Amino acid sequence: MLHTETELSRLVFEHRLTRFLYDEARLLDEWRLKEWLDLFTSDAVYLVPTTDHPQPMPTRDLTLIHDDRKRLAYRVGLLLGERAWAESPVSRTRRMLSNIRVEREHGGVCRVDSNFCVHRFRHGDVQTFIGRYEHELATVEGQLRIRRRTAILDHETLTPHGMVSIIL
């Protein structure tokens, strides 16, 4: 039983954040990458650390992916174009999110952590990527937007080819 209006508003806010993450996952699974890109702020960062260094300083440490908004738009363009041989034809993916937690809220930006499992189906093969998302979400003109998105893989190594050609 809710005791205060504050508790109710917190639950509504957490539901809104959870729904946002589910909607983001659906856009990626449906390969609606341009719509997914629209979820990002103009100063956004998308980061995938190496499997042996999950908390890098991207300006100093090696990462699998470290894209600013401009580079992310370029990546989406490549994946939707004909030159991305690793994704032609595109993979089918299915994402599962769990343990969604609002970690903190400060100055209009909130941090949301969640666990993920992404199954990638391609050429009769299945690859599974397991890890944790860290999202920094900001409200821009009344809409939630991604300011920073980090996909931290739990894998010791990337198999079989040592690469990630999908957006995690």
Rank of each mutant, 00 (worst) to 15 (best):
E7L: 11
R10Q: 12
R10A: 09
H15M: 14
H15S: 15
R16W: 10
R19E: 09
F20Y: 09
F20G: 01
L21W: 02
L28Q: 06
W31C: 09
W31L: 09
E35R: 07
L39I: 05
S42R: 05
D43L: 08
D43S: 13
A44N: 02
V45Q: 03
Y46E: 00
Y46F: 07
V48S: 03
T51C: 10
D52T: 15
D52E: 08
P56C: 05
P58N: 13
D61E: 13
L64Q: 02
I65S: 00
H66R: 12
R69H: 13
K70A: 15
Y74V: 15
R75A: 04
V76W: 04
G77Y: 03
G81S: 13
E82K: 06
E87A: 07
P89L: 15
V90T: 11
R92I: 03
R95M: 10
L97K: 03
I100V: 15
E103P: 03
E105Q: 14
H106K: 07
H106Y: 08
G107L: 02
G107Y: 06
G108I: 06
V109P: 00
V109Q: 11
C110P: 06
C110T: 15
D113N: 04
S114R: 01
N115V: 04
F116H: 04
H119L: 14
R120I: 14
R122Y: 14
R122P: 09
D125S: 14
V126E: 13
Q127I: 10
T128I: 15
T128Y: 05
F129G: 07
Y133K: 02
E134A: 11
H135L: 11
H135Q: 08
E136S: 12
E136F: 09
E136Q: 13
L137E: 05
A138I: 05
A138F: 01
T139C: 13
T139H: 08
T139F: 11
E141M: 14
Q143M: 12
L144M: 07
L144A: 07
I146Y: 02
R147N: 10
R149G: 00
T150V: 12
A151Y: 02
A151N: 06
A151V: 05
I152P: 00
E156Q: 12
L158Q: 03
P160W: 07
H161C: 11
G162Y: 03
S165L: 07
I166T: 01
I167M: 02
I167Q: 00
L168Y: 00
